[in-house]
């Protein structure tokens, strides 16, 4: 299957390894990767801050960039959710809204795509260690993808999954929230870090670059030796 990759701006700039892992993983599963270089950002930073009008041109740019795709896959629950919100954001412009709907319908978060489109539950990954999984808010609540990551992780050879206490609480990232309300964000991420530490797992897995930057950044500051990995990296380990 030909898969058009939306790698997300965070991965493009900061988490190159996640992008590489996603490409290699999908190729191993028999997909042909298409990466349109015209892609930029899904628009969440300005959209979520309330700059809706200013975000529309970026959104339209993304719709054009991915229009040719058969399916769009992205290693981010949050950015996939944003694609799914495009039709409603462009509601006042019926032409664009219809084009946005076509894009939303063919856009999948990575684990959802593997489990529900490719119908693969075991990707043949091997990784020794104990891990906890942080379910990101947009992916679980807004996109409704709850089981796919666990299904895939439970089939990784050598990996022991441990339940993360208070998994349902947000990690405190929230885009600009993390800098606008830094002191609240700090308390939220600390609670997440403490929960991860309490599992005594050596790896914390997540599916969103934003959460990972936040949690890993706080762990590094607190000198906590838990490795924070994107699920694509875990599934690509073999």
């Amino acid at each position: 299957m030909k898969v058009t990759l939306f790698v997300t701006c965070l991965v493009d700039m900061f988490e190159t390894n996640v992008g590489k892992a996603t490409v290699e993983l999908l190729e191993r599963l028999g997909c042909e990767i298409d990466f349109p270089t015209a892609q930029v950002c899904c628009g969440q930073p300005s959209y979520n801050s309330g700059y809706v009008e200013h975000t529309k041109s970026a959104i339209k740019k993304m719709i054009e960039t991915f229009e040719h795709a058969e399916v769009v896959v992205t290693p981010s629950g949050s950015c996939a959710t944003m694609f799914h919100e495009y039709p409603q954001i462009l509601n006042d412009e019926p032409g664009w809204s219809a084009r946005a709907r076509l894009l939303a319908e063919k856009t999948y978060e990575l684990t959802d795509f593997i489990v529900n489109v490719l119908k693969v539950e075991n990707v043949g990954a091997k990784l020794n260690g104990e891990a906890a999984y942080h379910p990101s808010c947009h992916m679980t609540r807004l996109l409704g993808i709850k089981d796919a990551p666990f299904t895939l992780l439970s089939n990784v050879e050598g990996l022991e999954m441990r339940p993360l206490p208070y998994a349902y609480n947000c990690c405190g990232f929230g885009g600009t929230f993390s800098v606008k309300m830094g002191n609240i964000s700090e308390q939220m991420v600390d609670e997440k870090v403490d929960a991860a530490v309490s599992t005594k797992a050596s790896i914390l897995v997540a599916s969103d670059g934003g959460c990972i930057m936040n949690i890993a950044g706080r762990m590094q500051r607190r000198h906590i030796p838990v490795k924070v990995m994107h699920i694509a990296e875990v599934l690509n380990a073999h």
Binding site: M13, F14, T16, S178, S185, E186, G217
Partner: peptide, 18 residues
């Protein structure tokens, strides 16, 4: 500044994904 007041920020990679 606000970000790094409480956490580390990842460096931009010399080689971007693209």
């Amino acid at each position: 500044k606000e970000w790094t007041a409480i956490r580390e920020f990842p460096t931009l990679k010399n080689e971007r994904f693209r």
